[in-house]
Each structure stands twice: as structure tokens, then as C-alpha cells.
């Protein structure tokens, strides 16, 4: 009988590929943004707003992760940017090898690469994709009890967007309670209250994105 000390990260391979993606983004001065949330929280609508605002000024591409269909990619591509749909055929998250492969289909003459992860508040949090920042959305109809139920996701967020705040009162969503719970799990996270559909409250988030685009561009 032999005992072997391994001490190896289980997701080391994922992290290695993610680090290669990061190198590609950095050497091409592309700001990479990973957008995560439950299904229906407003990821695609948020990305549409970002593209509408930034497309005249910056070169943008998107990678869209879904179990099936081209629906999200079609919505984003309709705004005139290069979009690659990844169908995970059952997998509940994007991993770095899927993104690495999708990057081969994208022209790297870009300022911003948006990755729309699979709608899921659990699994995507465990898989680093090599992006510079993570944005997590929570929408009011999901209920105000979600933050502490999914601690890993809210802990990895650089920005948390509380979306659909225009209907918060109708779905009994306590915005202040949610903000406090996010701060407890992640004191570093920036929190913005928005309605992506109504185009409301997005300015602080959009300037955060823009400052990141500029800083990666000047790296």
C-alpha cells in the first residue's frame, strides 16, 4: 500500500485554461466581463443596454451560454455585434474550455468581451473563466431571501445589480435587507439598483464598465 500526497486543486485544469484566456484578453487589451444570475433575472436585457450605449464608442463581442437555443445570441447579435452562442447541452455553467473554444471564433480586435453565463445562481460561481470582473444580477421577483441562500455567487461578485426595482413594491422585495445581506457576504461588492428594461439607474454601472474598459485598454 502506498500513500501519495497530492494536494492538487480539483479545478486546476479549468483555472489553467482560464489563465490562458486572461493572457489573451490582457495582451489584446480587452476588458472581460462575466455576467451571472438566475434564469430570467435580466442578463440579456442588461447586455442589450450595454451594447446600445457603448457600440458607437467601443468594439464589443459577446459569448452567450445556454443549455439550448440561439435565442439570446440572436437578441444580442441583432444589435450588430459579433456574438457566439455556446450550447452546453445540459451543463449548468460555462467552463473555461468552452469559452476558450468560442474565443477562436471571435475577432480579437475588441475593447469589451461580455460573457453571458448560463442562468444559474450556483454552479457558474465555481468556474473561473479568465474574465477581469464578475457582475451578478438579482431581480426582485426572485424574492428577497436569495442572497444568503447562494453565498458563493454573491461572494465572487465585483458588482451586484438589483434589477427590476421598478416592481419591488409589488413583489414585496425589501431592497435594504438585500443590500445589507450582500454587504455581509461581500463587503467589497459595488451594489447598484436598476431597472434594465426601463433603462433606469444604469448610469453608475455603465461608468464602472467604461472605467474598466479604459483601464484595461491602457494597461
Amino acid at each position: 500500500m502506498k500513500r501519495i500526497v497530492v494536494e492538487k486543486k480539483i479545478l486546476e485544469k479549468n483555472d489553467d485554461i482560464a489563465n490562458q484566456i486572461r493572457k489573451t484578453l490582457d495582451s489584446n487589451h480587452i476588458f472581460g466581463l462575466n455576467v451571472m444570475s438566475s434564469p430570467g433575472a435580466g442578463k440579456t436585457t442588461l447586455i442589450e443596454r450595454m451594447v446600445e450605449i457603448f457600440k458607437s464608442k467601443y468594439k464589443i463581442a459577446a459569448i452567450d451560454g445556454d443549455l439550448d437555443t440561439q435565442r439570446d445570441a440572436q437578441r444580442i447579435a441583432a444589435l450588430g455585434i459579433e456574438t457566439v452562442q455556446i450550447n452546453t447541452s445540459g451543463a449548468c455553467h460555462l467552463d473555461s474550455s468552452m469559452v476558450y473554444k468560442a474565443l477562436n471564433d471571435i475577432t480579437l480586435d475588441l475593447d469589451l468581451l461580455i460573457i453571458e453565463n448560463v442562468g444559474n445562481l450556483v454552479c457558474p460561481a465555481s468556474f473561473y473563466l479568465g474574465t477581469h470582473k464578475n457582475v451578478v444580477l438579482i431581480s426582485t421577483p426572485e424574492g428577497d431571501d436569495k442572497v444568503k441562500k447562494y453565498p458563493t455567487m454573491f461572494n465572487v461578485a465585483d458588482v451586484v445589480l438589483i434589477n427590476k426595482t421598478d416592481i419591488a413594491q409589488f413583489v414585496k422585495f425589501d431592497v435594504e435587507k438585500v443590500e445589507n445581506e450582500i454587504k455581509e457576504l461581500n463587503p467589497h461588492a459595488l451594489i447598484y439598483k436598476i431597472s434594465a428594461l426601463k433603462n433606469d439607474g444604469l448610469e453608475p454601472f455603465l461608468s464602472w464598465v467604461e472605467s474598466n474598459i479604459v483601464s484595461v485598454k491602457n494597461q
Partner: peptide, 16 residues
């Protein structure tokens, strides 16, 4: 800052 709690590791293996 989190020191522990994010681990996902293989520590050791026994075999023959």
C-alpha cells in the same frame, strides 16, 4: 478576508 472555506482539493491518495 477569507482564509479557509473555498477549498476544492485532492489531499492524498492511497493505492497499491
Amino acid at each position: 478576508s477569507i482564509i479557509n472555506g473555498k477549498e476544492l482539493e485532492i489531499v492524498d491518495v492511497e493505492g497499491k
